[in-house]
Computed example of a mutant assay.
Amino acid sequence: MKNNNNEFFANVGLFISALFVVALALFLQPVIYVGFGYLGGLVVKWVFGGIISNGLNSVFGTDRFNSDYIPMIAVTLAFIGSYFRVSSANSNKK
Rank of each mutant, 00 (worst) to 15 (best):
S88I: 07
N6G: 13
N90A: 13
N92I: 09
S53N: 04
L77T: 03
L19F: 15
L28R: 13
F8G: 03
Y38M: 12
A78D: 05
I51P: 00
Y83S: 06
G55P: 08
Q29N: 12
Y38C: 03
S53W: 02
A18H: 15
T76R: 09
A74P: 08
T62M: 05
N66A: 09
N5Y: 15
F84M: 01
G49E: 05
T62F: 00
F48T: 09
V47R: 11
V43A: 11
A10H: 10
V47H: 04
G50Q: 07
G40Y: 04
A89L: 12
G55Y: 06
L26W: 08
V47Q: 07
F36K: 11
V86Y: 02
N6T: 15
N66V: 04
V34Q: 08
A78R: 00
G13E: 08
V75K: 05
F9E: 10
N3Q: 09
A23D: 10
V44L: 10
L26P: 00
F36T: 03
T76L: 09
N5R: 11
A25G: 13
N66P: 04
K45G: 04
L42G: 11
V12A: 08
G41A: 03
A89E: 13
D68Q: 12
G81Q: 05
G81E: 04
V34P: 09
N4H: 08
L19E: 10
G55K: 07
F60M: 08
K94P: 06
A78P: 02
T76W: 03
A23S: 15
A74S: 05
L28G: 03
G41K: 01
F79A: 04
I73P: 01
V44Y: 02
L56Y: 00
L39V: 07
D68F: 11
G35N: 04
S17T: 08
F27R: 10
A18Y: 08
L77S: 09
G50W: 00
L39R: 12
S53M: 00
V22Q: 07
D63W: 02
L14C: 15
N57L: 01
W46L: 13
N6H: 12
N6D: 10
N92R: 03
F20G: 12
A25E: 13
L28C: 15
F65W: 08
I70G: 06
I52E: 03
M72R: 05
G50V: 01
A74M: 01
S91E: 10
V43W: 08
L19A: 11
P30C: 05
G13D: 05
S91H: 08
N5E: 11
G81Y: 06
Q29P: 02
D63L: 09
V12S: 09
D68G: 15
A89C: 02
Q29H: 03
S67K: 07
Y33C: 07
S87V: 06
G35K: 12
S67Y: 02
A18Q: 14
D68M: 10
F48R: 06
N57K: 01
Q29K: 13
G40M: 07
N6S: 12
A89F: 04
L39F: 11
S82G: 05
L26R: 12
V43Y: 15
F48Y: 12
Y69S: 07
F27V: 06
V75Y: 04
